[in-house]
Design a protein around this nucleic acid. Structure first.
Length: 566
RNA sequence: GGGCUCGUAGCCUAGCCAGGACAGGGCGACAGCCUCCUAAGCUGUAGAUCAGGGGUUCGAAUCCCCUCGGGCCCGCCA
């Protein structure tokens, strides 16, 4: 499917053949490089051969190039030596043919593998803030990428319905009498959480009462668990609403308490007790992590309290056991603060012989004035960011076009929310982000609107030309001779490879980079190649169509609307 | 005290895992481009001791060691 794979395979087998027939068999790094445009499409460096062949790299490269030239197949158009490299040029006609064919009729075949991808799993004690928003955006984009690859993906939100955060909220709702005016229920609830937290810190008695709530939950007390649910439900609804607005839908919500109630947490504890790595401190059971390369002040991973009740991580193990039975691949999107906990869970799962999840970690989003904190109220909520983005997008639309208001609002919503998703996903998850409004609301350059705009331009051309459809094979691909045509086709052709890489590395950031590159190449084509009315109109329309489709694919995978006009 | 991670122009960022041909983009700055398929676009200029030092190598932003700086973690919390 991937044209570059065919090309690469042909090169690699010829390179190996050339080496063994000229210099004999050698163990080498058979890696190809992506050289500068002018030097070719792939390059093989010959420096590593110099010591064994006892010749200069450039002589080796020219001997190899000569051999390959005489034996080349259909994918290599040209091969030449330059500066100790063998440079390969792809057959552009074949590339164009296969690329157009892929775009117009290609889809990944369905796989049998089932994926459970857990993301967000935020404490439902208030609205989602921008720091936490990195999680659903990474998670949802990954889910889309795996679905595109043919996997059967279910996204899950693990609801911590028996934890301290929700317990604090519940206590607040029961004991604090105050009026809070807020547009959304989650924003109203967080005020109670904040107030309760403050009271808990000052007053031992409050702390005690909250502790009682938690204890009851862990004992599986139905009445308390129901109260907890009533408390967090509205907050969770608010989170779901915010997520919907940025085009994220979570398939299922799994409550932590179910694993206490159905006894699987107890099962985990009993099973782990049999392991040689456990120990006791009083009655509290722990796993000694020293055996697993964890050192430091405390390498005891506690599974139960003194009173035998379970801890968060213990329940998380039970959850993973459950997930593991329902999927072939488990993916968890987690904040970097969960790195140790994830390691502990992994060790426990190994001991139990269960499936190990792939963890995707992301670094924190902070504000210029410091860490975000819901408790201290030093946060930017996702809802506020969305409102601001949409409002600004609306002003921009109004500035540029005369449209009826409903249409302008629609475009503004898609531009604003797209910009947010893009500006977050484009940064490698491992890098920490300092949130700045002007960056988060960027509508130019490396941004969603830039890409959406290129898509809209494609649509506009197709509309103007009255274009319907091109069937594969209908176009003579040897007519693509303009550098911008060829460049654009090459970028389109590399789309499958990019998706593969995102999947292999569980990193959606490459897709964002790719989408920008594609849009940018299209803009260059747009500048230099007249489509409508040119003598190559048919051929160029096919490229525009392929670009539009690929941009749309990329945007959709990023969870961003591919607008037809803006 | 221990561990993980990041450090690339004024700012943001790609490249690092699998070392190789002038370190790519973007924002901002400056100078330009709309009688021509939407200027959320395009062109050009300026701007980089690849945090610092040592080592491995024919060759290091990339691998190894040390130092410095930022983030995160080390609870019978979640």
């Amino acid at each position: 499917m991937d044209p570059y794979e065919y090309f690469r395979q042909e090169i690699l087998s010829l390179v190996k053949e050339a080496v063994s027939s000229i210099y004999g068999k050698h163990k080498l790094a058979w890696t190809l490089e992506k050289p500068l445009e002018e030097f070719g499409d792939f390059a093989f460096p010959c420096f590593q051969l110099a010591p064994v062949a006892k010749k200069s790299p450039s002589l080796i490269a020219s001997e190899m190039a000569e051999f390959i030239e005489q034996n080349k197949g259909e994918w290599i158009e040209k091969v030449e030596e330059k500066g100790g490299y063998v440079n390969f040029f792809i057959n552009k006609r074949k590339l164009a043919e296969l690329t157009l064919k892929n775009v117009f009729e290609g889809r990944e075949e369905k796989k049998r593998e089932r994926v459970i991808l857990e993301h967000t799993s935020a404490n439902p004690n208030g609205p989602l803030h921008v720091g936490r928003a990195r999680n659903p955006i990474i998670g949802d984009t990954l889910a889309r990428i795996f679905r595109w690859g043919g996997y059967d993906v279910e996204t899950q939100f693990y609801v911590d319905d028996m934890g301290k955060q929700v317990a604090i909220l519940l206590w607040g709702l029961k004991n604090i009498d105050m009026e809070v005016e807020e547009k959304k229920e989650d924003h109203r609830l967080v005020a109670f959480y904040q107030k309760a937290y403050e009271m808990m810190e000052r007053d031992e008695k409050v702390k005690e009462e909250i502790g009682q709530i938690i204890k009851k939950c862990e004992e599986g007390d139905e009445k308390t668990l129901n109260e907890m649910k009533e408390a967090y439900e509205k907050a969770l609804e608010g989170i779901v609403e915010s997520l919907e607005r940025i085009n994220i839908k979570i398939d299922s919500f799994v409550e932590e308490s179910r694993f206490v109630i159905d006894g699987s947490v107890q099962y985990v504890i009993e099973e782990l007790k049999k392991s040689e790595f456990v120990g006791y401190e009083g009655n509290a059971l722990y796993l000694d992590m020293e055996h697993f390369g964890i050192h430091g002040r405390n390498k005891k991973f506690f599974l139960t309290r003194e009173d035998g009740t379970s801890l968060y991580a213990t329940r998380d193990i039970a959850y993973h056991l459950w997930k593991g039975k329902r999927a072939d691949l488990l993916i968890n999107v987690l904040g970097e603060d969960h790195k140790l906990e994830a390691k502990l869970v992994e060790v426990a799962l190994k001991i139990l012989g269960a499936k190990i999840p792939v963890a995707v970690f992301y670094s924190f989003v902070s504000l210029p004035e410091g860490k975000m904190s819901t408790r201290r109220g030093r946060v930017v909520y996702l809802d506020d960011l969305i409102d601001e983005a949409v409002e600004r997008a609306y002003d921009e639309v109004r500035k540029r076009r005369e449209l009826d208001d409903a249409k302008a609002r629609f475009i503004a919503e898609k531009v604003g929310t797209g910009a947010i998703r893009y500006n977050i996903i484009k940064v490698n998850p491992e890098k920490a982000i300092t949130f700045r409004w002007e960056e988060a609301l960027n509508f130019e350059g490396e941004s969603a609107p830039f890409i959406q705009y290129a898509h809209a331009r494609c649509c506009s051309i197709m509309k103007k030309a009255g274009y319907t459809e091109t069937k594969p094979g209908e176009i003579d691909c040897s007519n693509y001779t303009h550098p911008q045509e060829i460049n654009l086709i090459k970028i389109i052709a590399s789309f499958p490879g990019v998706i593969k890489r995102c999947q292999n590395e569980f990193n959606p950031a490459y897709l964002a980079e790719y989408a920008h590159k594609l849009a940018s190449s299209f803009n260059a084509f747009y500048r230099d190649c007249q489509v409508v009315g040119s003598e190559k109109e048919r051929e160029r329309l096919a490229i525009v169509h392929a670009t539009r489709q690929t941009l749309k694919n990329a945007l959709t995978l990023l969870g961003i609307e591919a607008l037809e006009e803006m």
